[in-house]
Design a protein around this nucleic acid. Structure first.
Lengths: 341, 341
DNA sequence: GAGAGCAATGGAAGCGCTTTCATTGTAGCC
DNA sequence: GGCTACAATGAAAGCGCTTCCATTGCTCTC
């Protein structure tokens, strides 16, 4: 056995490589590579011969090797808090659709609303040398930011707005959402105002926007609950119970998500509140079920899918070398006034 | 400029490589590799020195190179139809949690209930040489099967059951679900029976199970609707309108998902049906909102997350070389009897 | 006190591609 | 007819790791 032979682990039946295809098609490896990546540089006849060999052998290119050599992986990574809470799922679908049609693949990271986990994910992701990375939100650990900017790849932050993103951001102002909701409630006017919310950075911003807009007009009540993101139906229900316990007068409530609002609504029903006369509830997200609660839920609508689409487009443009991708890409939101406010 | 130099693209400030770390720590590259992958083979003192250099330089290993050399990528790919329809989102969360804690990463593919797209995804995914692959369902194109078995990696099919999986399957029998639902309705007894369903392979199996169980007892009515998977609230509503239009007598309906059931329920309400006396509705999935419809929805509950967890465990075991992973891993399901049946 | 055994390290080769820089052949032109 | 131009292909190097197989010092053991 020669030194050469013993290094070939699977001389015959190992996975087919580009070199195998080249040999069988009687061309050099470079030509096969070109046939795959830049077919217009190869003579049609040669192309066809190579194509036949590929079909016959079932050759699947090794993108690890390709990526290592070319420094382009055609991989885009995205970190979102969760995929089970409807809110980000559609963004991912939008993202994915756009990426796939451009020949890219999506590497998904779930951070669970945890900044530390985001950091670890970022490290693990960068080790795969994606061509771009998409993060949820604009608040990251110092180390995360450093690692990200040091990696020198296109970055898109989604679901929030900032004048100074790491690179580019696609989203909207949660402060503005809070303010808008406050105004919607003020148009009718209630004796009391409250906010039921989760504790993730964006929910907090929405609350702050709400509170700020009502400053000097009313003290916003904030039920004290241990409500971690994502918050649930039960959280909303418990918080509403607390609010109804606590005092009288008409009440306008802003919930940090439709799920919470749904829970709040259930409790209000249970206690026999008249909605929206005595009690107004506004959610956030316009989830599928929102039109079907009793009464139908008034909420804030965002085109969640569009965030994904725009994020993908931005990152693809950046990869293509475009400089004019703007730091902040705004996404619309508006109140869908249904039955609860 | 020597021939050697001109091939170093970024002699000074390019991304830090393992070789750079080795040089700075005054050890050989192999030792750095060991420090990272098998630290117990390295003297604590050396380990520490290397660790300092890594921290100082911000070195991030290149997993493309590592994967190419070691033929292990620590990547697991999963193909699901969609992530926006709640049904698979939790499975993915379960999958991801388990994989991450074992040091693996998840590469996500969305097939949109389309077998052709599943094939293309499979090809694209295999090109990244994942250590394992997870597919939804057991019906795949011939080419997909061939490609998959040819790739020689652990495969797990989820969300369905079969005596002859490609490798291992984690799920349950949709036929059995349909039969169980039929029995639940039979226990009360209705004049008419109907099924409202999507057209994906699993929904069809549930329908068949339902129809088979009722064979000889009643003809199951199947509203003719162009209902593609995933089906929607409106689909359910329209189908129910058709059913109520069509005849009289008490009616037991099995819907292919809770979302469809919710729509059907809304229409029934609208038409003033008494539920469950005149009209029984059973959904599938036990989605978050199911306990909160009016009346609360009776449905079939599956531990969606558990499917992900078990799939991850199975595939990790296979990767570790275990032979005793069993071809079929069953997941429980049962009817949650609430207010609609 | 010599060989066995082990802990710690290194050298060299190669994983399967792409890139850069030739090289060949043929068409096109004055 | 000789030169340029371009289309089509190839040779060689290298992307950044891991693997395999030494090699070097030790500490044990009899």
């Amino acid at each position: 056995m020669t030194g050469h032979d013993k290094n070939r682990r699977n001389p015959t039946n190992g996975p087919v490589t580009l070199a195998d295809v080249a040999r069988l098609a009687d061309v050099s490896p470079v030509t096969v590579s070109r046939a795959i990546n830049t077919p217009n540089l190869v003579k049609p006849q040669t192309l066809e011969a190579i194509g036949r060999v590929i079909a016959r052998t079932g050759y699947v290119p090794n993108l690890l090797a390709g990526g290592l050599a070319s420094r382009r992986t055609r991989l885009i990574a995205a970190i979102v808090p969760s995929v089970a809470s409807t809110i980000f799922a559609e963004t991912i679908e939008g993202l994915n659709a756009e990426l796939v049609s451009a020949g890219y693949q999506l590497l998904l990271g779930l951070s669970g609303y945890d900044a530390q986990r985001e950091l670890e994910l970022t490290r693990a992701i960068l080790a795969r040398r994606p061509d771009g990375i998409i993060l949820t939100g604009i608040s990251h650990l110092k180390e995360t930011r450093a690692m990200l900017t040091g990696a020198g790849l296109p970055i898109v932050e989604i679901w929030d707005s900032t004048p100074s993103p790491l690179d580019t951001a696609v989203g909207f102002s949660h402060l503005a959402v809070g303010a808008l909701v406050a105004e919607h409630l003020l148009a009718t006017g209630y004796d009391r105002y409250a906010q039921i919310g989760a504790n993730d950075p964006r929910a907090v911003q929405r609350r702050d926007g709400f509170v700020n807009r009502l400053a000097g007009i009313a003290e916003v009540e904030l039920p004290a609950l241990d409500m971690n993101s994502p918050s649930t139906f039960s959280d909303g229900r418990a918080a509403m119970a607390q609010l109804l316990d606590r005092g009288h007068g008409t009440l306008g409530v802003f919930c940090s998500s439709d799920v919470v609002a749904h829970g709040a609504l259930a409790e209000a029903h249970f206690q026999g509140c008249r909605i929206p006369e005595d009690l107004a509830i506004i959610g956030f997200g316009d989830f599928d079920f929102a039109p079907h609660t009793h009464p139908p839920l008034t909420t804030v609508r965002i085109d969640r899918r569009d965030i994904g689409t725009k994020a993908a487009q931005s990152i693809l443009k950046k990869i293509a070398g475009s400089e004019d991708v703007g730091a902040m890409i705004n996404v619309e939101f508006h109140i869908v006034a249904r039955g609860t406010a």
